[in-house]
Design a protein around this nucleic acid. Structure first.
Length: 482
RNA sequence: UCCUCCCUAGCUCAGUUGGUUAGAGCAUCUGACUGUUAAUCAGAGGGUCGCUGGUUCAAGUCCAGCGGGGGGAGCCA
């Protein structure tokens, strides 16, 4: 019978009622041969278990080492010590699993995130990752809660896909062919007709195209699943396997799309702030301590919680691409030639430009809309009435301080002729996407959607600087451990 | 993929112009103490200096290649 155990988080919220309880967890520290700091993952706050001197066998006490797992039954009493409101005076103590202190890599001391990343299977047992992953859970739950309350249908789009048409990046090939000797056509190319699906297949880079199929039947749908990019990206904000949320709405234009994205982001942040306050406070303190070592000018103006409150309580700035370029051209940074890359209408904005807009100029999340058609995807709706040479599309990117692009979306091109013409221009094979084009053939409607990188959202909320620290088992180039 | 920095004990890091037996703090172990808060005090053990090769009388230290990691950039979410 294990299910009679009390979660430490719940126990710590009770009064010291002198009742008997049973708790289970892992030892964080064992002080003075008397005090066990026990943690069960429900909170960073440890339960103090008191072992009265002489009551327990010496050999048993020796086995209470860092991360040994314990079952403790005892009486909940007001704590005589200072660090906690209550404690459990043990009457029964059972070691469920020993932990060899000489071999166990985690110690009751500060470890670097780089080291902990190498022991990702154990890092959940630290306060930092405990808070990060409880927050990740809260955010994921809030995503579903938000869309459910809005009447969106959760659509599971496929992980394996045959469409290579989206151009969102390099793809991972999925195949059961023998890679050392695959069947070949007469011209030497690989014969995918012999492959499992009878054609070349890959892991998905986006559920959007399938999402549009759902939206043009259910009205509003969202997807929330894993996404794969085989880019050789070695940065603190890229993963080869990450999670993305992609809502797609029929009868929806660019402005509706922006409104939803802004409301959505604020909702899930607010949910985390309400439900995981202690974890946020812990991470805020961690970040503040870390920044103490930085020079004054590199430190954040706002603490983590102040930053989130600011985002939740203020409107996102909304500007067009053209306005963004004008701001950059007028900026002191541009005039002093501080930018490494040149600024002019038509460029794809570089990180330094986006950072200037978000972190220096507006100091809040910014939604940039109506990008040049030439630098955006084929499915984005072409703006009407553009002057020649300045064609734009109804795209919108949300840029967040410290993270960069957190949302990318657009109103979709619902006019069949315009879509087909654009696909031709961009060499997207229309015959492979016949099913996508059918939505424009049969009852086409104005519709829009966006993708939100979930890990980047978790980074933003937790303040973690490296995306590898907000996903349980990060997949990056040359790294697929665990 | 490019630029740049780093790799010394379980962890974090010192290690001088190349020079005898490579150090510290924390952790671990042993003992003491016992209402502690990353407990404290005393002692002990613990090293293929990332790997391979080169220069040299002599390499942790200099050079080259490879591997791994950090920061920045590109690609993007």
């Amino acid at each position: 019978m294990f299910n009679k155990r009390v979660k430490i988080k719940d126990l710590l919220q009770q009064d010291a009622n002198e009742q008997e309880v049973t708790v289970m967890g892992w030892v964080r520290t064992f002080r003075n041969n008397q005090f066990v700091a026990l943690n069960d993952g429900s909170t960073n706050n440890n339960l103090q278990v008191v072992l009265e001197l002489g009551k327990f066998d010496e050999e048993l006490l020796k086995r209470i080492t860092t991360s040994a797992s314990l079952k403790v039954t005892g009486i909940v009493l007001p704590s005589q010590g200072k660090g906690q409101k209550l404690e459990v005076k043990a009457t029964l103590l059972e070691i469920l699993g020993d932990s060899d202190a000489e071999k166990y890599p985690l110690q009751p001391k500060k470890h670097s995130l780089e080291f902990l990343r190498e022991i990702a299977h154990l890092r959940f047992r630290t306060n930092t990752y405990g808070s990060v992953f409880r927050l990740r859970h809260a955010l994921a739950f809030a995503v579903h809660k938000f869309y459910n309350e809005k009447g969106f249908l959760y659509l599971h789009t496929p992980v394996i896909t045959a469409s290579d048409a989206e151009g969102a990046g390099e793809m991972f090939r999925v195949s059961t062919l023998p890679f050392d000797n695959p069947p070949r056509n007469e011209d030497g190319t690989i014969n995918y007709k012999e492959d499992f699906f009878g054609k070349a297949t890959n892991l998905t880079v986006s559920g959007q195209l399938e999402g549009e199929l759902g939206a043009t039947a259910f009205g509003e749908i969202y997807t929330f699943g894993p996404t794969f990019r085989a880019e050789n990206s070695n940065t603190a904000r890229h993963l080869a396997e990450f999670w993305m949320i992609e809502p797609e709405m029929a009868f929806c234009d660019l402005e509706d799309n922006m409104n939803l994205a802004e409301e959505f982001i604020k909702y899930i942040i607010r949910y985390a702030m309400e439900h995981n306050r202690e974890d946020l406070e812990f991470l805020a303190q961690r970040l503040a301590d870390e920044e103490k070592q930085l020079p004054q000018d590199k430190r954040s103006e706002l603490g983590l919680i102040e930053k989130l409150e600011f985002v939740v309580n203020n409107e996102f700035e909304r500007i067009t691409y053209t306005e963004a370029i004008d701001i950059l051209l007028q900026s002191p940074a541009y005039k002093k030639k501080k930018f490494q890359y040149d600024v002019k209408w038509g460029i794809d904005m570089q990180s330094e430009h986006e950072r200037y807009l978000v972190e220096k100029h507006f100091k809040k999340p910014v939604i940039v809309t109506n990008y040049p058609a030439a630098i955006k995807a084929f499915y984005m709706r072409q703006d009407d009435g553009c002057e020649p040479g300045r064609e734009t599309v109804a795209a919108m990117d949300i840029l967040a301080p410290g993270i960069g692009e957190i949302v990318g979306g657009s109103q979709r091109e619902e006019r069949l002729d315009k879509l087909e013409q654009r696909m031709k221009e961009m060499h997207v094979p229309a015959e492979d996407l016949w099913w996508y084009l059918d939505t424009r053939r049969f009852g086409s409607v104005p519709h829009a959607g966006f993708g939100l990188g979930f890990e980047r959202m978790v980074q933003f909320v937790t303040g973690m600087g490296n995306i590898r620290d907000v996903i349980a088992f990060p997949r990056t180039p040359k790294n697929c451990e665990f």
